[in-house]
Design a protein around this nucleic acid. Sequence first.
DNA 1: TAAGATTGACTGCTCAATCTTA
DNA 2: TAAGATTGAGCAGTCAATCTTA
Lengths: 153, 153
Amino acid sequence: MTDDLETEYPQPAESPGLMLWRVTNTWQRRVRAVLAPHGITHVQFVLLATLTWMDRDQPVTQRSLADHAGIDIMMTSQVVRVLEAKGYITRHAHPADRRAIILSPTPAGIDLANRANVDVEAVDRSYFSALGSTPKATFIHCLQQLNDAQTGT
Amino acid sequence: MTDDLETEYPQPAESPGLMLWRVTNTWQRRVRAVLAPHGITHVQFVLLATLTWMDRDQPVTQRSLADHAGIDIMMTSQVVRVLEAKGYITRHAHPADRRAIILSPTPAGIDLANRANVDVEAVDRSYFSALGSTPKATFIHCLQQLNDAQTGT
DNA sequence: TAAGATTGACTGCTCAATCTTA
DNA sequence: TAAGATTGAGCAGTCAATCTTA
């Protein structure tokens, strides 16, 4: 029939999905680079920072941390034990639910989360400054709409 | 010092990097799901579709395919041989440069690229329709600015 | 020296399946 | 039955190192 690709996009750069994927990959590389000196990976940072940020007056289970961080429960299970082994998180039995595990950041974990967060937020400012004249708020609004549509909000 | 996270974002959803990462992950899940019946992964599809789309009057080396697809050269090296094993691509010696390898899609590869592309473009239309009143062009423009800033354009 | 390509190792993300307890 | 957690397997993405040829 054809020996070419029949597409609605004259150029790949006009495909929103493809561009989204490329941009995320370059952003991830930047984040990974600034986290490396701290000795943690991106997912480890997100979970540790989210746990530190969350209100811990109520017990935080792995399930609730996973939901807040937007990371799936299997990944959370694995990474949380890595963070425990590194001394940044403690895992204790839930007093009322014997299936559940309560998570708390250690003082070292809270300290690391804050030090690493300074560098990550600096990367974000630098990376997204390329938006130039387009208000950053417009871009974030787009992302929030797309995210909400998936999470059923 | 503190037992909380000191951040410039009152809510995680206001962090552009975090939202970018979440949105890409959900988009990737959707794409993976529609490609599964075709028996190929996302990266395999991107490389096969890019090769099919590229002008092949000039010999296409792995390096040039990797550059056009925005995929790193090691990943390209691995996946291209998978595509060859599946019968979607042929690899031949470059006539003038004995280091290089010339890639061509087979008729089966061209056919698969076109069939799969229909489904992937349908996912994109569906997924990004959530942008609602915000023009999709605005979102793509943001992504292009971010991408160009990284590639030195 | 540089460029095209490859290998091995490690983390990330997902899926299917399982185990235990509510 | 459902919910919290875990394990194992497979593909994705990156890095360091290597090999061959320009």
